[in-house]
Every structure is written in structure tokens, then in C-alpha cells.
């Protein structure tokens, strides 16, 4: 039986036209091509995933006798930065922006939300806000059962946690954008190029904080309420999100939400300055970050 098979296969090899045969070698070659293609495909991804680490170790030697928070700054650097600032803002300075939110103080009044909507020309009909305040039961950080739609703020049986774009040091949204229409600027602010966004919404999918929002409709802002410092046109069909009020903070101001908070729960500042309020808070208080285990390295800390 097996002899016959051997003979047959030999016979067919001998008569095969144009040297065409099935062979194990060909098959192995095929497998080789599979592995090769997959490997080729993943190389750039691996390289770019490694790249930040290389940059980080290069920067590590720069600050001498530095601050205890320097290790955070080392992780926070520009990602996919095209070399020129985003069209609607001034170039970044040398700061590293960060925010600390005191959830013990927060009463859930949503004044930060409203101030943000007005400051950033968010469409009144758009159905989203950059800041979302979660109302949660006492006793745990249970996001899965958090309430966004609460009617009455300040309930003593609940606690409140505002969530917005965390300007992550490892922004999954920036990694996920197929066309580099969003990037992290040298001062840590993650921005979106509205003229380049292809509306694939992959950044909405990759963001663990639900911080990105798509303009499904033409954003409508009453003429007299428009902020001339923030782009409004051409926003339909692109993604937008919190920019740490880039139009204010890069000109010496603070964010609208920080300004609006009636209880002073928000502290905004420059993390690269060891004497700034945020730096001092991080050094003197015990802080935590939302979904720390995801490794996004958010630049908003919570303190309670």
C-alpha cells in the first residue's frame, strides 16, 4: 500500500509539466510566507511601542538633582507630535500640565461642566460634554454602577467624581488613530487636528475614560455666546475633547473648570515646577488615578 503510494508520487513527479509538483518544501515555504507577513506587519507596531521608552531613558539624565516627581515627567512626552503645534493654539511652552481633583470636596454641582461647555464652544445640541461627573455609592469606586444622570447634587450618601480627558502619558487614543490626526504635544496636551480627522471614531473606542466625543450633528452655539479663541466651524463629523483649555493655559490662564469650581476641588498647574500647587499636592497628599491598572498614565490625579 505505502509502496504503491511512493511509486505513484514518483511517477507523477516524473511526468509533471513545467517542473510543477506538490512538495513538503513548498508547503513549508508557504508557512514561511505566513509567518513572514505577520512578523513584518507587527514590526512597526513593536518599534513604535518601544520608541517612547528609548526617548524616556534619553531624557532621564537631563534634570540634575531633580524632583521626586521627575519619574512621572520622564514618562510624559510628546507622542506622534508632527513637529508643529495644532493649528488652533499657540506653541507649547516648557510646562507639563497636570490636574488634581479633590473628590472629598466635590459636591457634584456640575458648574465645571457648564463652564467648560461655554468656554469650548461645545454645541448646545451636540449631546455631550467634555466633563462627565459620576455619582457613586459610598464604599467603593464602582464605575459600572455609577450614575451620570443624577438630578440633585450634593447628596451626603453619595460621592462625586468628575471625569474628562486625562491627557494620558500613554494615550491609547493617539496610538489608535490610523492617520495621526491626534497627538500629544510637548506640554502634555493631547490635541486633535480637525482638518485631518477621518471620522473613523477608533479613538472613541480606545479611550478607557469615554473622554472623546464625535460631532454627529453640526454644533450649534448662539452667536453671542461664541468664544472666538476656540474653533467652531468644520467641527461636524470630527472628534473633539477636553484640551485643558489650551487657549487659556498656554497664555498664562487656568482652565475654565478650575476657575468655575465653587469649592476649589480642582487644582491645575505645571508639574515640571516643583513648587507648583499640583506638584506640592502630589508630594504631600496620597493620590490615586482612575483605572491606573490600564497603564495609560493619566495626568489627572484624584485625592480624597
Amino acid at each position: 500500500m505505502s509502496d504503491n503510494k511512493k511509486l505513484d508520487s514518483k511517477g507523477s513527479e516524473a511526468t509533471a509539466p513545467e517542473g510543477y509538483t506538490y512538495s513538503r518544501r513548498r508547503f513549508v515555504e508557504g508557512i514561511g510566507v505566513v509567518v513572514g507577513m505577520v512578523a513584518l506587519g507587527t514590526v512597526p507596531a513593536l518599534l513604535s511601542a518601544q520608541a517612547p521608552l528609548v526617548v524616556a531613558s534619553g531624557n532621564g539624565s537631563e534634570p540634575e538633582g531633580g524632583d521626586v516627581l521627575d519619574y512621572i515627567l520622564e514618562e510624559d512626552h510628546a507622542v506622534n507630535y508632527p513637529g508643529k503645534p495644532v493649528s488652533y493654539a499657540d506653541p507649547a511652552g516648557s510646562e507639563k500640565w497636570a490636574m488634581v481633583i479633590d473628590v472629598k470636596a466635590c459636591v457634584g454641582c456640575r458648574r465645571c461642566v457648564y463652564a467648560c461647555v461655554e468656554e469650548n464652544n461645545i454645541g448646545r445640541n451636540s449631546g455631550f460634554t467634555y466633563i462627565q461627573v459620576l455619582e457613586m455609592e459610598l464604599g467603593k469606586v464602582d464605575i459600572e454602577h455609577a450614575n451620570l444622570e443624577y438630578e440633585e447634587a450634593g447628596s451626603p450618601d453619595k460621592w462625586y467624581m468628575p471625569v474628562q480627558c486625562m491627557q494620558c502619558a500613554k494615550p491609547t487614543c493617539v496610538y489608535g488613530c490610523p492617520v495621526i490626526a491626534t497627538w500629544k504635544e510637548p506640554d502634555g496636551i493631547v490635541v486633535i487636528d480637525y482638518d485631518k480627522c477621518i471620522a473613523c471614531r477608533n479613538c472613541l473606542v480606545t479611550c478607557p475614560y469615554d473622554a472623546r466625543h464625535f460631532n454627529w450633528v453640526e454644533p450649534e452655539v448662539p452667536e453671542d455666546e461664541r468664544n472666538p479663541d476656540v474653533p467652531l466651524e468644520e467641527k461636524a463629523g470630527v472628534v473633539e475633547k477636553c484640551t485643558f483649555c489650551i487657549q487659556r493655559t498656554r497664555n498664562g490662564g487656568t482652565t475654565a473648570c478650575t476657575e468655575a469650581c465653587p469649592v476649589g476641588a480642582r487644582t491645575f498647574g505645571d508639574l515640571s515646577d516643583p513648587e507648583s500647587a499640583v506638584s506640592i499636592l502630589l508630594k504631600t497628599r496620597r493620590v490615586w488615578r482612575l483605572k491606573e491598572e490600564y497603564g495609560n498614565e493619566p495626568m489627572i490625579w484624584y485625592v480624597g
Partner: peptide
């Protein structure tokens, strides 16, 4: 832009 500036970390 998918051809001009593809981002190697995006599965898309």
C-alpha cells in the same frame, strides 16, 4: 491620509 501618514500602532 491612510496612505500618507499611516500610524503603525493603529490596527485600522
Amino acid at each position: 491620509w491612510m496612505l500618507l501618514t499611516p500610524n503603525p500602532t493603529s490596527p485600522f
